[in-house]
Design a protein around this nucleic acid. Structure first.
Lengths: 248, 248
DNA sequence: CTTATTTTTGCTGGAAATTGCAAGAATATG
DNA sequence: CATATTCTTGCAATTTCCAGCAAAAATAAG
């Protein structure tokens, strides 16, 4: 067995289990624990994982912000993302907002899909880098470490020049009267431009965000064409539907 | 059996098994392991596969083009990066080109360092996202999957507006007469603008890149203020020093 | 057709990398 | 604090790699 095969196995297992143990790997790969230790050492050197006593855990660039949020409501987000897939057609240009719901959506892209995706999100860009049919346009600007997106005037200028078929928005908070709001001024400004640069706006939002508000306004609720949500969200759908918004 | 037939067989087997071994191929093709080794060497030269100890693995579609390059010359790159550290001062604005040498440099940033780093490279941006004292400005543009950097007119426009103290350039090829050259037109154009937007240009280059040239020109060699290289590179330093370039 | 040149191939011996083992140090756990 | 894991370090056995050489094959030149 080649060393690289072991590397591959380790990284896959790490992705699946969110941890690996010396003892397990030694058994799985039929090599001594010392070899496993050395393999983990090599992978850690290249920043592919973090070595810990007894094994290793995934390398999370900013463990307390983006990656932590990925776990929560995971099934809900997957279900929402699956509904969103039906909006995609080959050849479209898509603006993909940052956030865990939109990230989940990009993970579901079928390999045959042909798209141009404009995004300020590093995790989404990295995810789509592995996709053969998607052209990625990354918006420039200052990097916000907590949410791993670019924002600021440069980001806005780039998006202003775009014209997209759909904008998928990972909404922070959503309220029938207050509209779409977010916790950060710069990011809210970027989201606002995204809405204006797309023909249709599709919001991906878990039920717990509906009916809530945050300090910075992105846009009016009527700027949304469609809201994709989970069961908890559907039970709160009436006021949005009365405004002519498609809630599914 | 023609050499090309062997090549064909090797590539097919690689596609089927996701790996090939010297021993197996030697047996399958009825040639010595040395011949197999040389065949793999030739195929690796053309970027058709990645040679590893004991055999070869496929050249993954896109995502690992960057990661694969990380292992090679690792110690040399670290030594080069360590020399480059001494150029950094708190408060500076740095343009950090893509590439494995510059990536190695960012990994060595001491936690107390306070910088603004402008970069088109996703791996560098991710690395610096973990750094408490560094502000990251990511240049926008189309994402080039093989080298994991943005490039194109948007990237150029953003860098043009910058004024940096130092540009650290991960040079592809470097020749005393031909100048700095690279394998990709768009990336070369971006590098050119980087050079113009910085007060000083520091090239990080392993010895094997010195005295070589590629299709697309970045700038004249005299645009470099300093070349940081390894021992192999230092032995080739004379022509550069005659041009007034600091080679260390 | 013969001879010279280049390319390919296999072999050899030393260099380098990989792996497993053992003993002592370091770290966690109750 | 005692005990059990786990980690580090050094080392030896094995495998694999590499550079150079010589024979064989292919190609070019006379």
């Amino acid at each position: 067995m080649l060393k690289e095969e072991r590397f591959d196995y380790i990284l896959r297992k790490l992705q699946a289990d969110h941890k690996v143990l010396h003892t397990e790997l030694s058994n799985d790969l039929q090599v001594s624990e010392d070899t496993v230790r050395r393999d983990l050492e090599a992978l850690a050197q290249n920043g592919l994982l973090i070595k810990v006593r007894g094994g290793a855990i995934p390398h999370s660039p900013h463990p307390y912000a983006f990656n932590e949020r990925i776990g929560i409501h995971e099934d809900d987000k997957k279900a929402i993302a699956a509904k969103a897939l039906s909006f995609l057609r080959d050849g479209q240009t898509i603006i993909m907002d940052g956030g865990t719901s939109t990230y989940a959506l990009t993970k579901l892209f079928p390999p045959s899909l042909q798209l141009t995706v404009v995004t300020p999100s590093i995790p989404i860009a990295m995810q789509l880098m592995e996709h053969p049919g998607v052209d990625v346009i990354l918006t420039g600007g200052r990097l916000f470490k907590s949410s791993q997106v670019t924002a600021g005037i440069d980001t806005i200028r780039m998006i202003e020049k775009m014209r997209a078929d759909i904008c998928f928005m990972g909404v922070c908070s959503l309220h029938p009267e207050v509209g779409v709001t977010g916790p950060d001024m710069d990011e809210a400004a970027v989201k606002n431009v995204m809405v204006q640069s797309a023909n249709r706006v599709v919001a991906l939002v878990t039920g717990d965000k509906m009916g809530t508000a945050e300090p910075y306004k992105v846009c009016n609720i009527t700027a949304m064409d469609t809201i994709i949500t989970d069961e908890a969200g559907l039970s709160l759908a009436i006021p949005y539907r009365q405004l002519g918004i498609n809630v599914i």
